[in-house]
Design a protein around this nucleic acid. Structure first.
Lengths: 133, 133
DNA sequence: TGGATTATTAGAATGATTCTAAACTACAAA
DNA sequence: TTTGTAGTTTAGAATCATTCTAATAATCCA
């Protein structure tokens, strides 16, 4: 059984050709940052036909199941990240690309006091990059 | 001359009633986080009529002139921040509200190496909050 | 194999933002 | 003050990412 389909079985989703293709893509590289548009472009280039709605449905479903994480980078579009470890990101706006920053590449010597009655839900750190000069 | 209009004069924008109203609102509190929709709702409640396009035009213009800073919080909408100091944010998703985190409330003992050929453009830190239990 | 459940899809709907082009306003020169 | 022009505002159309809808198709399991 395909690795992709093992994953689908584990999270209780039917192994359709569309889902398999999406997960194959995610597995292909170690860590993937993807948007719906980038993914459909990639798949169509490989002659794999799929609708945008299906891309969205599945990326969201995989995020719900904990296989991907949603990332807000800017207001353009939703990013999905296959790296589930705690980590942060560089954003290269020229290439429209994310680069992981490992959790242990940033450490804090002082962290802010959380407002009363609240707890931390998530920490988002994005360091936007531009070219030298 | 109104404080708002002094600001407009300084940045070379004509003091229209719309602009004055927007800047008055920003000045009214020490630090303001707004979105276009929140601002138009506020102004209409005060019986001040203005179009959404004008709100957007002006918030963007003020951001260009360095009077406001644009903030990407999530993919919902653009935020504008009148606090020009280096700082970070809590995001209270229940109230859809931002809370400043002063620059000196966070300190880093380790910061990541910037990828070669690039320099840091901006650092965005958002700590999303949820209610205790 | 058949029927129920789950998926996919095209296209419509939504919501934030920007664009367009027409009507309006501030301003400075006469 | 008038007046021409450059700058502004505006309603509504356009755009773009995303979600919704409801019809069709695929998967599953008794």
């Amino acid at each position: 059984m395909l690795e992709a389909n093992k994953i689908l079985k584990k999270i209780n989703l039917r192994p359709t050709t569309q889902r398999t293709a999406i997960i194959e893509y995610i597995l292909q590289k170690h860590k993937v940052h993807i948007t719906a548009t980038k993914l459909i472009t990639h798949l169509k280039k490989k002659k794999f036909n799929i609708s945008l709605a299906t891309i969205y449905n599945n990326l969201n479903e995989l995020a719900d199941k904990g296989i991907l994480r949603k990332l807000h980078v800017n207001n353009d579009k939703m990013w999905f990240d296959s790296n589930l470890q705690d980590h942060y990101h560089f954003y290269d706006s020229e290439k429209d690309e994310l680069i992981d920053i490992d959790k242990n590449e940033i450490s804090f010597s002082k962290i802010p006091k959380i407002p009363r009655g609240k707890i931390k839900d998530s920490i988002n750190i994005i360091i936007s990059l531009k070219s030298k000069n």
